[in-house]
Design a binder for these strands. Structure first.
Lengths: 163, 163
DNA sequence: CGCAACTCTATTGCACGCAATTAAATTATG
DNA sequence: CATAATTTAATTGCGTGCAATAGAGTTGCG
């Protein structure tokens, strides 16, 4: 039983007018959650053909972003940064290793931990990734300021949903 | 060969200062794509415990939203609205059918098409979904106006990425 | 009519994403 | 010191998401 709370508490009660308003807004196109969901998938689809040249999937690219920035990291730290657990990361990292992008080694001091580090060819991929990012940034049509503003709003939204 | 274009064209060339700017921004936390990705996952995680009571997963909930709003729909129309193909929808709809939420039947006029329609219990789920949506909307901390503004910006972003 | 091209859904194979469990290593506790 | 509790990764099972393919049905064109 590791799950925080199954949240079986009753939902907040609604007045009749509240219920009416929420009911009217319960449409796919009006849902913020779907707009976020669809935008995330649009990003993934836009990245996919470009990342194929680097022999990376989109989630693998996110892991590489962290490694390019931070250097060698443990699986736990990667999981916290990406909100992913070992059930997702373990096989993903093995594929990155098979592709020759990263290496895994057990920490000598604490053998439970696995440190993931870039191979030279994995580190070299960053130069190509800069071009891929520039291409996507161009496609969004957003100025850097717009993108930063939207990013910060989404960050706040995420914080609120996780709280 | 159904894929539109493998996009093997060369990426746009960058001047040295451009490359410098994009390189500096190539960080997980500064990426708009990751902010969108993380917010989408935060929504899914927030919805999950609430949707469990309705015996729905989040993607199944999106299908139900369409059916509640539009009535019986074909698999193709569902796929276009959600940007999903039959490889995802066919098994998903079968699970909805097994759960007793929907029915599938071949169209009499065109036997290639499958029409998905709500069962009475599936239609009745909408009342509970209103409460779930209200709970999530409360959790976001966004006013309806804020949510609508953010939703529209994300819609534009999606359009740009798909164009 | 007859055959080719097209449409629509289903299936297969692979890569996430996550809950639950397992196994190994480390730390805390008596 | 020995054992229990905790930490960390890996594994298993299920539900997407998508490319590629298959297969049945329909349409177009001579």
């Amino acid at each position: 039983m590791k799950r925080p709370i199954p949240a079986n508490d009753p939902l907040p009660a609604l007045t009749a007018p509240e219920r009416e308003a929420f009911s009217a807004a319960l449409t796919l196109d009006r849902q913020l959650c779907f707009a976020v969901h669809a935008a995330a998938h649009a990003f993934q689809r836009a990245y996919k053909p470009l990342l194929e040249r680097l022999n990376l999937t989109y989630p693998q690219y996110l892991v590489m972003l962290l490694l390019w920035e931070q250097g060698p990291m443990g699986v736990k730290a990667l999981g916290e940064a990406l909100t992913l657990d070992s059930g997702t990361l373990s096989p993903l990292i093995k594929r990155l290793e098979q592709a020759g992008h990263v290496e895994r080694r057990r920490d000598a001091a604490d053998e439970r931990q696995v440190t993931v580090s870039l191979t030279p060819s994995g580190a070299a991929l960053r130069d190509e990734a800069v071009g891929v990012f520039a291409a996507i940034a161009g496609k969004t049509g957003c100025s850097a300021e717009d993108a930063d503003g939207l990013r910060d709003r989404l960050h706040s939204l995420r914080q609120a949903l996780e709280g």
